[in-house]
Amino acid sequence: MAVADLMVLVFNVILYEIKEAYFPHSFLNYTPICSLVIALIYISLDWSVWLTVTFTFDRFVIICCQSLRFKYCTMKTALKVITAVFMLSILENIPIYFIFEHREVINDVPWSCYVKSSFYTSPTWIAYLWFETILTPFTPFALIFLLNALTIKHIIMANRVRSKLRGNNREACQTDQETENRRKSIILLVAISSNFIFLWMVNLICFICVQFTDTQFLETDYNDSFTIAEKSGYMLRCLSTCTNTFIYGVSQRHFREELKNVIIRPFLSIANIFKRWNTKGTSSKNVNE
């Protein structure tokens, strides 16, 4: 998930947005390269989103499907799922490369990327746009919401059973660590669902506007409200790829421990070096004496 999100930042933020703002005449603005970068943006976005879905399913299996847990939640299965999602993301977004044409030609060199007018009229391209949007983000919306809802329902039912088994002892209920962990899991799942849906909502509304109005993608009129909304949607979509990994990562105890080790280890290494130097200095002094 972290690698996929990093790819989104590299392709979308650095190679596209920063390039457009600060290096508009670089080689990255050649039409073939520009088209390739945009295709890579969609590949990395789909990979990031669907890894979030698979991670959500993984948590669902761990909490709700004890019989499947030890068969599915393995390193081997994770490797297969990650590879499959990556390959399908590439195959799904190959057509993206072919929907753009040059905006202008300078010295026989095609510059910039402009969505072909046939993209909005051709039945094939319209069908592909619907397919792309249904696959991402409609389907992830539904799956993340459904899986998290089922997981939360399972946790609530388990808590009720646990409370009945423990009786009406309020003090025991308040100090029940298992119930507290489940409560934190519910908060985490609600945060993930809300974060994903909220940050993708603007992008989804822009898609609906394109389908039912005369507006078009990638317009450059920044006085136009749709262009502002579209750019804001892209920004929030990039933010979504970062926050999901952050929320999932910080919520994991092992991740926090590893992060703490990464931060502390350089200081421990420096302290050990000074300690060895001091030990050598003391030994040399004792030998001289």
Rank of each mutant, 00 (worst) to 15 (best):
S26R: 05
F11G: 01
P266M: 03
Y128C: 01
I41S: 00
V161L: 11
L268Y: 11
P140V: 00
L6T: 12
Q177V: 14
A78R: 08
E17P: 10
L79I: 10
S26D: 03
F60E: 01
T245N: 03
Y30W: 09
N148M: 00
I62Y: 08
S67Q: 07
L188E: 10
K184P: 00
C34W: 06
S118D: 15
A172H: 03
K164E: 14
I263M: 13
Q177R: 12
F60Y: 12
K280H: 12
G281Y: 15
E92Q: 06
E171Q: 14
V37E: 01
I41T: 05
A158R: 12
L135Y: 09
C238F: 08
L9N: 08
E17L: 11
C64H: 01
S122A: 00
I263A: 15
P137L: 00
F198I: 12
F27I: 11
Y16F: 12
R265W: 04
R166F: 07
R162Q: 08
L165Q: 13
F212M: 06
M1G: 08
N272T: 15
N244K: 02
L68Y: 13
C73S: 05
R170F: 09
L51A: 00
H254G: 11
S283A: 14
R256A: 09
A39W: 03
C173K: 11
F98L: 07
A127F: 07
M235W: 11
C65F: 13
K80W: 07
T151F: 09
F27G: 06
I144T: 04
N12Y: 12
A2W: 10
N29A: 09
Y248N: 05
I144H: 04
W277R: 13
F57Y: 11
I205L: 03
T227A: 12
L40Q: 06
S283Y: 14
I270D: 14
I208P: 09
L45P: 08
V250R: 02
V262P: 02
F255V: 15
E180R: 09
